[in-house]
C-alpha cells in the first residue's frame, strides 16, 4: 500500500492486522518501553488547517517510535497563502521527508498529494471527505471494548451531514456487518448519497431523531459535536443542541458494556457527569489515536511490528 487516503485502501484483513499491531504497540505509546522502529525516518506534518489533536497525535506517534517530525508551521505565514500550488508544496516536502501526514480544507487534496508524491501520504482529513486515521482509532476503541467489530449495534449521533468522521466510520462498520442507527435532526441527517452507498453494501440502517430510544439496544453510542455555524439562527441551534445532550442518568437503560465515544472536542453534547461512568470511552479514544497512528506509520513505511513487545525495554 502506498498511501492511506480512504478506508477503501485497506481490506478488512488489513484493518485487523493494523489493529493487532496497534494493540501490541500500547506499552510503547504509553511510554513504558522505548522501541525505535522508525529511527532515522522523518514525518512531514502538513496541516493546512488547524488541528491540534490530529497533528499532535501524529507527532507523538512518530516520536514514540524514535522518528523525527518536521511541521509545516503556521499556514498564515507559509507559502500556501502566497499562491503556491499543492503540487509544488508536495514536491518540496516529498524531498525532505519519508512520509507525509496531511490535513487540507479541500476535498480530494490527499489523493491529489498522493498522486504528486513519491512518499506515502496519510490523510488526516480532506474537507468534507475522508479521515481514515480517525476511523482506525475509532475501530480500535470499539474492538478494545467489545473484543470484536462484527455485528455490533452502533448509534451515530449529532451532525451526520458535515461530519467526515461519521462518514468514514459508517462505511467501515458496514464492512464488518454492524447495524447502524443514525440519530440527527433533519437538517443534519446523513447525506442520501452515503446512505445509498451503504445500503448497496447491504447495510442495516435506521434513521431517527430520538436519542433516548436508541440507548437500550446500542453497543456503541458515537456522539459528535453540532456546530453553531451550521444553523441559520441561534434558536434553532439551541433547540437541537439541547436534544442531543447525554447525561449519566440517561444511560441507566443502557447495556452494561455499552460505550460512549466522541471524536472531541465536545461542547455540551456529553455532560461531564458521564465521564465517571463505566460507559465513557472518549478519553481512551483520544489516546488510542497515538497507537493507531503508530501502527499505520509502520505499515506505510514497511516496518514490521515485532510479534512480542515487552513493557520493560524493546523486543524480545
Amino acid at each position: 500500500m502506498a498511501s492511506l487516503i480512504t478506508m477503501d485502501d485497506l481490506t478488512n484483513e488489513e484493518i485487523i492486522e493494523v489493529l493487532d499491531n496497534a494493540e501490541r504497540l500500547l506499552p510503547v505509546a504509553r511510554g513504558e518501553t522505548y522501541l525505535p522502529l522508525l529511527e532515522g525516518k522523518i514525518l512531514g506534518n502538513l496541516f493546512f488547517e488547524p488541528s491540534t489533536r490530529t497533528r499532535m497525535s501524529f507527532e507523538t506517534a512518530m516520536k514514540r517510535l524514535g522518528g523525527e517530525v518536521v511541521n509545516l508551521g503556521d499556514v498564515k505565514t507559509s507559502s500556501v497563502v502566497k499562491g503556491e500550488t499543492l503540487f509544488d508544496m508536495i514536491q518540496m516536502v516529498d524531498g525532505y521527508t519519508d512520509i507525509i501526514a496531511m490535513r487540507h480544507p479541500r476535498q480530494g487534496a490527499a489523493q491529489y498529494a498522493s498522486d504528486s508524491a513519491r512518499v506515502p501520504i496519510l490523510n488526516g482529513g480532506d474537507g468534507a471527505g475522508h479521515h481514515p486515521t480517525q476511523t482506525m482509532l475509532d475501530l480500535f476503541t470499539i474492538r478494545q471494548a467489545h473484543g470484536t467489530l462484527e455485528g455490533l449495534n452502533v448509534a451515530l449521533v449529532g451532525d451526520l451531514r458535515f461530519g467526515r468522521t461519521v462518514h468514514s466510520l459508517s462505511h467501515a462498520l458496514v464492512r464488518f456487518g454492524c447495524t447502524l442507527t443514525f440519530v440527527s435532526p433533519e437538517s443534519l441527517s446523513m447525506p442520501d448519497e452515503i446512505i445509498s452507498d451503504l445500503k448497496r453494501h447491504g447495510a442495516d440502517i435506521t434513521e431517527t431523531a430520538d436519542l433516548s430510544s436508541v440507548i437500550p439496544s446500542a453497543d456503541v453510542i458515537y456522539m459528535t459535536r453540532i456546530q453553531k455555524e451550521r444553523f441559520p439562527d441561534e434558536d434553532e441551534y439551541a433547540r437541537v443542541a439541547g436534544i442531543f445532550k447525554l447525561c449519566a442518568a440517561d444511560l441507566s437503560p443502557a447495556k452494561g458494556g455499552m460505550i460512549v465515544m466522541h471524536p472531541l472536542p465536545r461542547v455540551s453534547e456529553i455532560s461531564p457527569d458521564v465521564d465517571n461512568t463505566k460507559h465513557a470511552r472518549y478519553f481512551e479514544q483520544a489516546f488510542n489515536g497515538v497507537v493507531a497512528r503508530m501502527s499505520l506509520l509502520c505499515r506505510l513505511l514497511n516496518v514490521e511490528v515485532p510479534a512480542i513487545i515487552s513493557s520493560n525495554g524493546g523486543e524480545n
Partner: peptide, 11 residues
C-alpha cells in the same frame, strides 16, 4: 471545494 479547483494545479 475539490482539490483541483482553480485550474492552477498541474495534475
Amino acid at each position: 471545494n475539490c482539490a483541483t479547483w482553480g485550474d492552477r494545479e498541474p495534475l
